[in-house]
């Protein structure tokens, strides 16, 4: 019933999280640079016209809306974090995840998603396509898992977006880098 409140991307995220964690018992970290800008902007247009605010739309205009709906719908009561990092989302996501793992969490869920910036603001940000990727990370090697190795990289280059991460996970290139954070990553086989 709650899915109806989410857009396509939000539903895709809920589906991925349900697949990665059927017990719905893991911490969720969700990074998105822009979130659902379209919905927030529509609300502001409405306010400007003196129209009353839609409570459902208002409730979903916050950055943690998707994670919140997921938590209610799935019954997952673990901690959640919604991250925006001005283009450094992937690096921030990995940094947060490393913190939780170092703190003793055996396994957690990461989501990186974005949507196009509303037309009105499109000139001020790099174009972003609607895409989401979800991963399960852990501190212990498991069947089929790969090791994430981080290294410093020079600044410069384009902003890392969810589609870049998907391409990298699918093996199109060996490394990805988040120039604004000066960090790069590659995946290594666990079989030594």
């Amino acid at each position: 019933m709650l899915r109806r409140r989410l857009n396509l991307l939000g539903r895709a995220i809920c589906d991925m999280l349900a697949t990665l964690d059927p017990e719905a018992d893991r911490i969720v970290l969700h990074a998105s640079r822009h979130g659902d800008g379209e919905r927030t902007l529509e609300m502001l247009y409405g306010l400007n016209e003196g129209e009353p605010l839609s409570p459902a739309r208002f409730g979903l205009s916050v950055h943690n809306a998707t994670a919140g709906v997921y938590s209610i719908a799935s019954g997952n009561r673990r901690s959640q974090q919604a991250i925006a990092a001005s283009g450094g989302e992937w690096a921030a996501l990995i940094a947060e995840a490393s913190g939780y793992l170092a703190d003793g969490q055996p396994s957690l869920l990461l989501v990186f998603s974005d949507q196009p910036v509303p037309q009105r603001f499109a000139a001020y940000a790099p174009a972003s396509l609607s895409a989401a990727v979800a991963l399960r990370v852990g501190s212990q090697p498991t069947e089929g898992a790969r090791r994430l190795v981080e290294a410093a990289t020079p600044a410069g280059g384009t902003t890392l977006q969810p589609l870049d991460v998907i391409d990298w996970l699918m093996g199109s290139h060996q490394r990805i880098a988040c120039p604004i954070s000066r960090r790069g990553w590659q995946l290594e086989s666990l079989r030594s």
Binding site: M1, R5, P52, S54, P55, A56, G59
Partner: peptide
């Protein structure tokens, strides 16, 4: 039907409009 409190607020707004 299984509606929740946000739906109640939304319905209240629709009745007003």
């Amino acid at each position: 039907l299984g509606l929740d409190s946000i739906d109640a607020l939304e319905l209240g707004l629709a009745l007003q409009k």
